[in-house]
Nucleic acid binder design. Structure first.
Lengths: 310, 310
DNA sequence: CCTGGCATG
DNA sequence: CATGGCAGG
């Protein structure tokens, strides 16, 4: 029992756009009134070598599958109608999945991974129109495979890997773990790549270069834009993989896939490009297009779609 | 990471209407389709001795003041316009109170009690149009005064005590504590009553007799209708106090002030009378009316109002 | 079935 | 400022 006065807590993070810790209070000017939007161009269904795309893959960090279903995320999916739908941050044990998604006839082959320990944390899913040859969970390393972060599906001509990469956390409390993850995940992908080329998609929880987020200056010490995480992604690409969006649109600014719910970031397009399609180099000739579907609502991330001939 | 099938958890508590544990699966027939409602009769503003009511007091367990404010509970209060408004289960530290209530000009004298330890738990409030002579918190016993459960206001001719009595909990885990509370609280009221007569109001967390809840049979082992709690209330009345509603309407059935949110209890009027105005016997001649405002929404309890000449 | 907190992002 | 889980009712 106590007596006090009015609140005035929050309002600490002003010029910070992840929701991460350590706000920098140094910037003076506000964001411009008119947001600089990225207009996703019309889909290109033909690749350089002239082949037509025969596969469409969509990846979406749904930030809670149950809430996302309630916000009609599945209507968008039906409209987009990809051959494979990869979801991250489902935050849902398999027994609690909404019937609206488990009973979806368009995707008879559904695969779910969720956190062993923490309920409602992490979790990824893959829904397929055609049945993969084989599906596996995790990357084969005990320490990384308890949080439902990776599903790998083998298709006739490629592997499809979807992942929700561990966030380094506020105050970078989990950056050390992330660095271990990056090393081991890269090793896992390189191993796979020896067998068949692969498509990696999902929330990689890193904006690679300054062009990949609105406020690079203010975020160098924040989760998702530390030099450790950025170098981790660089090393991945140096292992023989390509960031398909940046390959196609090397100069495109203001193209983001994530906006924190805080501070009306999305309406101002103060965002980050955290979601990717990363391809084995040998798949590059078949790359048709990589789309950022930033009009789709229902999460703090938007979906991305890949058109490819495989 | 695990794989399973569809959910079928809940649906355990069927014929239980507190949300308490130990559901009895024995009843066969369902509740009638047409709910038996209690129609609160028109207010009686004149008491037996012919005096006009000069005081109106309203008591409401709001089940979270912030949510209740958002659901426009204050609009109802402005309409009812009591001289004193007593609230229980505010679940809100004083520093987090909505401005809509702290700045309410109709009630310049506002008193708040909240839990010392558990944030967002328990808590009562008293809002007055006229300033009380003195206001105190708790009952003067350390062990009971940490959860913000009692405010006592001294007025010229009476004390007004509002309380949120400890719930005995699912599985009656806190029944022993409750019994201690009942003894000590009764002693506190008896002490006060020596000085001046008193009005006690609030959520007493007990349905006194079978008439005071829809399903007496099924709830004898549940919090709010155990013999211990019922006898505690009987002993309070035997200490020289009167349940004003039952005094006025001794045979009135289906008159409840609480309905669990579960199982659509309110629409079926499967409820409990847990909220009371209890009066020192010497105030009985001034008792005009005790109203159950069961049309007011915004909580799992409804407000009750007392008209009295003091 | 609701509340308010909490951890997490 | 969202999510989902939790204790409490």
């Amino acid at each position: 029992m106590k007596r006090g006065k009015k609140t005035e807590d929050a309002a600490a993070d002003e010029e910070n756009d992840t929701g991460s810790a350590s706000a920098k209070k140094t910037k003076k000017a506000k964001e411009p009134e008119a947001p600089i939007l990225y207009e996703d161009p019309p889909d290109k269904m033909t690749c350089k070598d002239g082949r037509e795309a025969n596969m469409k893959i969509t990846s979406w960090n749904v930030d809670g599958l149950r809430a996302w279903v309630k916000k009609n995320g599945l209507d968008w999916v039906r409209e987009e109608s990809p051959d494979v739908l990869c979801l991250q941050e489902t935050k849902c044990a398999e027994k609690s999945l909404p019937a609206a998604i488990t009973s979806m006839p368009e995707y008879p082959y559904k695969y779910w991974a969720s956190s062993d320990e923490k309920e409602g944390y992490s979790g990824v899913a893959m829904l397929c129109k055609t049945e993969p040859i084989k599906v596996t969970y995790g990357i084969g390393k005990e320490e990384h495979d308890k949080e439902g972060r990776v599903i790998t599906a083998e298709f006739p001509t490629f592997y499809l890997v979807t992942t929700y990469v561990p966030n380094s956390g506020r105050g970078l409390v989990r950056l050390d773990y992330r660095k271990t993850w990056d090393v081991d995940f890269r090793a896992y992908l390189s191993e796979l790549d020896i067998q068949k080329p692969l498509v990696l998609c999902g929330d990689l929880n890193v904006a690679h270069q300054e062009i990949d987020l609105k406020n690079p200056k203010g975020n160098k010490k924040n989760a998702g834009f530390t030099s450790d995480e950025r170098e981790g992604f660089t090393q991945l690409l140096e292992s023989g993989f390509t960031d398909s969006f940046r390959e196609l649109y090397p100069e495109q600014t203001n193209a983001y896939t994530f906006w924190t719910y805080m501070m009306n970031s999305r309406s101002k397009n103060v965002g980050w490009r955290l979601d990717y399609f990363v391809l084995s180099s040998s798949l590059l000739p078949g790359l048709c297009d990589c789309k950022i579907r930033n009009k789709a609502l229902g999460s703090d991330h938007c979906p991305i779609s890949l058109h490819i001939a495989v």
